[in-house]
Simulated scan of single mutants.
Amino acid sequence: MVLSIAAPVSAQIRSDETKVYAVLINELSKENLPNSTTVMLTKTRPLSQCLLTSKADEISRLIPTATKSVISDFLNVGEKEMHFDIPKPSSSSGNSLISLSENDFVTLFKRSIKLNEAWKDFFRQFPKSHSLITFSRVGLDSESKQALVLRSTTSGGQFESGDLFLMFKKKGRWKISERVNIWIT
């Protein structure tokens, strides 16, 4: 899978962030039902918009193996936004990934004043999708050996969840070490 990120001038994209997102997207494709579609927003969301109001000590309690450095960087870059450019690959299980630009997202959800009507439009446009996925920026420790990122899943106002992923780099490759659900509605 190829993942390229077009960064606005205000964002400093680190090469390891790109690699972390690629691993998470591959993992996400394995979680979906066969022949389903994953719709992913191509802009990261600030932590405050993802319902994450945790402080460093709370994150440390949730994921004790996370270093102070990775938590600090995660909270520091977490309010900054970044744009993705993701191709639309298909896996062998028939799953596909659709990139939803910020403009398309705004257009789709502005069509109706009522949120439930907007979600009906979303599911008409993406009938094989079950939800919309967004990511936060990736926090990296000072040695780029640990990464911390938040994935949010929203499904038509009926379901929402947030998962923190702690990852580590082994032999130059990022691996998921821990996944902690921090909210579900």
Rank of each mutant, 00 (worst) to 15 (best):
2 V>F: 14
148 L>G: 05
168 F>N: 12
122 F>Y: 04
118 A>C: 04
139 G>K: 03
5 I>F: 05
135 F>G: 00
10 S>Y: 14
46 P>K: 14
183 W>A: 06
39 V>F: 09
184 I>N: 13
93 S>Q: 15
68 K>I: 10
64 P>I: 12
129 S>D: 06
1 M>V: 14
142 S>M: 13
40 M>D: 07
22 A>W: 03
151 R>A: 08
63 I>Y: 10
11 A>W: 01
120 K>P: 00
136 S>C: 11
54 S>N: 01
76 N>Q: 14
171 K>F: 02
25 I>M: 15
141 D>P: 05
149 V>P: 00
29 S>T: 11
90 S>G: 12
150 L>T: 01
14 R>E: 13
35 N>K: 14
37 T>W: 04
172 G>V: 09
62 L>K: 07
162 G>K: 01
175 K>C: 10
118 A>P: 00
8 P>N: 11
66 A>I: 12
113 I>P: 02
15 S>Y: 13
162 G>C: 04
127 P>K: 02
9 V>Q: 07
96 S>W: 08
123 F>V: 01
49 Q>K: 07
130 H>W: 07
70 V>W: 07
144 S>W: 03
90 S>K: 14
84 F>P: 01
107 T>K: 02
4 S>Q: 13
1 M>Y: 11
122 F>E: 00
13 I>C: 10
34 P>G: 06
183 W>S: 10
9 V>Y: 04
102 E>S: 07
45 R>L: 12
12 Q>P: 00
54 S>L: 11
178 E>N: 15
48 S>K: 12
14 R>F: 11
110 K>W: 00
163 D>R: 06
169 K>D: 01
44 T>A: 11
168 F>Q: 14
2 V>L: 14
4 S>I: 11
150 L>I: 06
47 L>W: 05
88 K>L: 08
151 R>F: 06
134 T>L: 08
49 Q>E: 04
38 T>W: 07
5 I>L: 10
74 F>I: 02
117 E>Y: 02
45 R>M: 14
109 F>V: 02
52 L>M: 13
29 S>M: 15
165 F>A: 09
171 K>I: 03
75 L>H: 04
169 K>F: 02
39 V>K: 06
146 Q>E: 14
73 D>I: 03
33 L>T: 12
129 S>E: 06
184 I>H: 13
133 I>K: 05
140 L>W: 09
119 W>S: 03
9 V>R: 07
63 I>G: 05
163 D>T: 11
85 D>M: 14
155 S>L: 02
27 E>A: 13
4 S>T: 15
55 K>H: 10
177 S>T: 04
159 F>R: 09
52 L>F: 09
97 L>S: 13
145 K>T: 15
131 S>G: 10
115 L>T: 09
69 S>L: 09
8 P>W: 07
93 S>K: 13
130 H>R: 12
47 L>C: 10
48 S>E: 02
9 V>H: 06
6 A>S: 10
129 S>A: 15
87 P>C: 10
37 T>V: 08
169 K>L: 05
7 A>N: 12
110 K>M: 04
127 P>L: 05
121 D>C: 03
179 R>Y: 08
99 S>H: 14
71 I>T: 09
